[in-house]
Design a binder for these strands. Structure first.
Lengths: 114, 114
DNA sequence: ACAAGGAGTTACCAAAAGGTGACGAGTCCC
DNA sequence: GGGACTCGTCACCTTTTGGTAACTCCTTGT
């Protein structure tokens, strides 16, 4: 689906701009966790059972490329920790994410009852 | 990406419920056009340059399966017209779609200027 | 010297999404 | 009978996405 690239002048659909940066199996989940507080890589991996290091790294890189999050690397006792958090720009997306989340909560019953 | 199926108990992420039903290269665009007024198939195809009949039909079927829209078939002079419109359920998604659209409008400059 | 631990990267593979082109079904008109 | 019109399906192919397993890099502790 729909990756973030500056093509497609087809139809002016503003919602598409947003969906392109959050499309990806793990991105909304990552953004949801980061709302709570910053997480480092292993912590995200631990809280997202099923994701592999490769894929998580990819998703984080894409979010970082799109300017939504940033990772701050630090060395603690010879071990590298990268702390991921929203950028100021990324935080502007949170209200929209909340709107999606609200809808999801209200309609989760319908969704699961199939 | 992420198609609408009732699997994945991995992490409770309400926003994911919403993103799964709108994920797809043409779905947000279709929903955006339908906000304006109901459209029939050929009209949607005409206003979405680049989409093929097959893919558009697929996307519409998925939106219909997910209960967001419905198509009403009518015969006009030996020619079948299917008029697509939001269901009541689908309309509940519009506020969330608006939130995404608002963000897209505000940040379209950043997006295109790369 | 070497294991340990976090954060990746690389090569390879499988599944899903999207795209193309041809074709069918129904009805009306010439 | 033979188009024309609209909606939609079928077989096939390409691209994108996600997944697995092995491996690197760096430093501290034994």
């Amino acid at each position: 689906m729909t990756s973030p690239r500056p093509d497609e002048k087809l139809l002016h659909c503003p919602a598409l701009v947003a969906t392109r940066v959050i499309a990806g199996k793990w991105k909304t989940r990552v953004l949801w966790l980061l709302r709570e507080r910053p997480h480092h890589f292993g912590e995200l991996k631990g809280r997202l059972p099923g994701v592999s290091a490769k894929v998580l790294a990819e998703q984080l890189q894409q979010l970082e490329r799109d300017g939504l999050i940033q990772g701050q690397a630090e060395l603690r006792g010879g071990v590298s920790f990268v702390l991921y958090d929203y950028t100021r720009y990324g935080r502007t997306l949170i209200p929209a994410l909340d709107a999606l989340g609200t809808w999801g909560l209200e309609h989760a019953a319908w969704e699961t009852g199939r």
